[in-house]
Write a protein that binds this DNA or RNA. Structure first.
Lengths: 122, 122
DNA sequence: TCATATAGGGATAAAATTATCCCCTATTGC
DNA sequence: GCAATAGGGGATAATTTTATCCCTATATGA
């Protein structure tokens, strides 16, 4: 595994939530698990742009951070289900607030983001 | 400047807000500007772990995304002030929600983050 | 027998982000 | 003349994060 060379700041609430939510697919994973899509294959179908590998890694991080739990059924073919922990459930309203702001400002955001991308830098 | 090779997803509100808030220091920059710390040197003092260079780059992105404006005074030594746009102000409550969740769960978060860091991976 | 579904992981490459280093402007004050 | 102040940026290195590729296992159905 990759070992960090620069330790993260953990001074304030923003640092802390950043540590656990930072990751390209984590917020979506939490969101979809909350919506009832608990199995890895379902999550992969919901997030087709991510590879299985990356989703597994990010799910593991969410698990280590105690936002989700993983239940492995001893059956063949294998069955796995992720669920939000009680702790994990408390972060859903925050994610909802993020999504709501994004939705409310969808057109404007798409506009400024695309403008910046097209104007050369990124 | 760096030019992206993989275009970002811009499908839902979460994608969109992610594009404009993703960046190690952006949320703090918005926060401190909202608190009245408008000049680059002030912001640098508030965020000593970031180099001037990176702050400038991230401020430029926030400006391109229309969350802040930059006012340059024609004086010597130079004087610059950043302010939130009306649009930028609307994202502050969302950031507040993030920070609040982090603060409320400070101990637990610090615990799980440090545990994961110490156990080898990162 | 071979593909499919299900879940997983190691090794490595690529991409993206941050950090570091060094340089620039112009004026005031010593 | 030289340092300090306030702002800025190019080039490159380092770090971190994601993506790609290929491998494992077992049972079912064609």
């Amino acid at each position: 595994m990759y070992e960090r060379k620069i330790l993260p700041n953990l001074n304030c609430g923003l640092d802390l939530i950043g540590e656990v939510l930072y990751g390209k697919w984590k917020i979506r994973l939490l969101w979809f698990i909350d919506q009832g899509h608990q199995r890895p294959s379902e999550l992969q179908r919901k997030i087709p742009d991510a590879t299985r590998r990356v989703l597994n890694i990010q799910l593991k991080e969410l698990e280590d951070h105690e936002l989700i739990t993983k239940k492995i059924y001893a059956v063949v073919p294998p069955k796995v289900e992720y669920s939000l922990t009680e702790f994990g459930k408390t972060v859903i309203p925050v994610i909802a607030a993020l999504g709501m702001w994004g939705d409310e400002n969808e057109e404007r955001l798409r506009g400024v983001i695309l403008k910046r991308l097209k104007s050369g830098n990124g």
